[in-house]
Amino acid sequence: MPLLFPLVVAALLFAIGVYAVLVRRNAILVLMGVELMLNAVNLNLVAFDAWHADALHGGQILTLFVITIAAAEIGLGLAIVLLVFRTRRQVDVDAVRELADRDQADERIAEAERAEAAERDELAERAEAGLAQTADAERGEGAEAAEQRTATAEAGR
């Protein structure tokens, strides 16, 4: 069986993957394109490994790792896409560009941070007021309970 077959298939796969990456605007489809590229790599590696009859099986070993890497990337990638989707209801790569519009973005970010800071201060004030209201006896436990609730909320998330 000629080496050429897997190589040509791999090259085609890679090309398709690159095409997907370049053309698709949906982040998930881009990810799929990347997966195609990685699988092309795997095919190449395995074919070359067999061709060289590599005693150390470098190609095969790297293939295993590439599979792992691909899995990790997909997992993380989907998580990030999910994160983006949750905050702005879309995963179009071109549309996610809040940070890209430089000058305005910088102003906006600063503005938002000032607002956040103000909110924080207000919260802290309210918290202090709230704590003052609650009975002094409860103080220690209250804080801890709040903390635990936070932890639970985190876990539940």
């Binding site: 924080r120 802290a124 918290a127 202090e128 709230g130 704590l131 609650t134 309970a145 709040a146 609730r149």
Partner: peptide, 10 residues
Amino acid sequence: GWERRPPPDR
């Protein structure tokens, strides 16, 4: 950090 203490869970 800048949170002096966590606000009570309300």
